[in-house]
């Protein structure tokens, strides 16, 4: 299985310094990017493309805390939630208020911050069941916020 932590030689964990990640990513790409092998043999070039692609995939996954959390949970054997009936009623309430023309941006922002905090806390105490629940809700809230931000169309 593809392990993004392994690609950079990082210890697996939810807490990651993004500055360190970016620095490592740039350093590794400077070594392996196919542009470094512009005049090389096809085989060497193909290897460089593979390695560089892997760095991109690992970086893109690790820099996003939600994707990072999802990877770690799967790794621990916790499949991602696909529904949450208690949370569903909250979502329905939000969308009803939105339909009535109410601005819920601020409320979603607060909720998003609260959920992120509980995701962090859950990882600190290694409570993966709670982390799984927080991740599901947080993903949902972020999606709603993004849809509002991008607007119609």
């Amino acid at each position: 299985m593809f392990d993004p932590f392994d690609v950079f030689g990082f210890e697996k964990g939810f807490f990651l310094d993004l500055k360190v990640l970016e620095k490592c990513y740039f350093e590794e790409q400077k070594k392996f990017h196919p542009d470094r092998f512009a005049l090389a043999e096809m085989n060497t070039k193909a290897d460089a493309i593979r390695k560089s692609t892997m760095l991109n995939q690992a970086y893109s996954l690790l820099k996003d805390p939600l994707e990072r959390a999802a990877f770690l949970l799967k790794e621990k054997g916790f499949e991602l939630m696909t529904h949450d009936s208690f949370f569903l009623s909250q979502v329905m309430e939000w969308s009803e208020r939105q339909d009535r023309g109410e601005d819920i941006t601020r409320e979603l922002q607060v909720e998003s911050e609260r959920l992120f905090k509980s995701l962090e806390d859950a990882f600190v105490v290694q409570d993966y069941a709670s982390a799984r629940e927080a991740l599901y809700r947080l993903t949902y809230v972020r999606k709603m916020m993004k849809a509002m931000f991008l607007g119609p169309g």
């Binding site: 400077k30 470094r36 512009a38 005049l39 090389a40 290897d47 460089a48």
Partner: peptide, 17 residues
């Protein structure tokens, strides 16, 4: 297969006229 590494800044110069 092992990747042949060229140090950054040292791309094989000799291969071009």
């Amino acid at each position: 297969m092992l990747l042949q590494l060229v140090e950054p800044g040292q791309t094989a110069k000799s291969q071009i006229s």
